[in-house]
Amino acid sequence: MFQLTRSRQDLYLNVFLKINGYFSFLAVFLIFLFIGKESIVALSGHSTAFIFDKSWFPSEGQFNTVPMIAGTLIVTFGSVILALPLGIISSLFANFYCPPRIKIFYRRAIELYTGIPSVVFGFWGLMKLVPIINEFQPPGQSLLAGILVLALMIFPIITLSLISSFEMASKNHFKVSESLGLKKSTYIWFVLLPSLKGQILGATILSTGRAIGETMAVLMVCGNIVKIPSSVFEPVRTLTANIALEMAYAMGTHRSALFLSGLILLIMIGFLLLLSDTLKKRFAWKD
């Protein structure tokens, strides 16, 4: 009797877990399906419009998204390239050079930093950073402003994930290297960092994901002109900013073109995940 109830309980749990598991899978699938379905209107008119149209003027039937794809890529990679050294340096500081008493506060501060809403960064960028850039090169709202604000936003993500990786790795071989008489800096450069390529890559991908999807901060400081920028002082519009700027009153094909922006964004993130998987495998194989 007891056995029977037990197995029945197992069965319930099993079914419950399966339903939940499938549901989250289904949710992703449905989101993809929905965005795809909503994009069809924009694609069906003349399917190459979003690559070959002259520019982006929805009210005049022009839907070229290429400058915004480029904008998203440039802003994202620019900020990641800036944030990566910042993140590595600050996590090295936290693990090896920070006085032990301050260490916990430093770490908490970085944790707090990751929780600052992006609109705050955007606001700061608009009020403080943009006027400074404007004095050198008007209009101030520019690719540069976007990259700087985003880099400041995402470097603590890299820091946090590297602090724990460094801790784990150092448990294994920091003492060994000290007993071998290696200097701290030698250990960091020749033992620690090379052995953690995979983790650094993982942290970078994580922050890239955050940067690519960032909307508010970028919208506020980037100037949002739909054009591939020819210098860092020129404004740029990202796909996310495009959706946020125009969704309020968009209708018909325009609305559908915004969904298409979202679809392109999803596909880009998909590629990013694929890329990280292949790179991770390559690093693992080398180890």
Partner: peptide, 12 residues
């Protein structure tokens, strides 16, 4: 027409 305007910044 909006395509005639040559803005430096676009805002929401």
């Amino acid at each position: 027409k909006n395509s005639q305007i040559k803005p430096d910044i676009i805002i929401g």
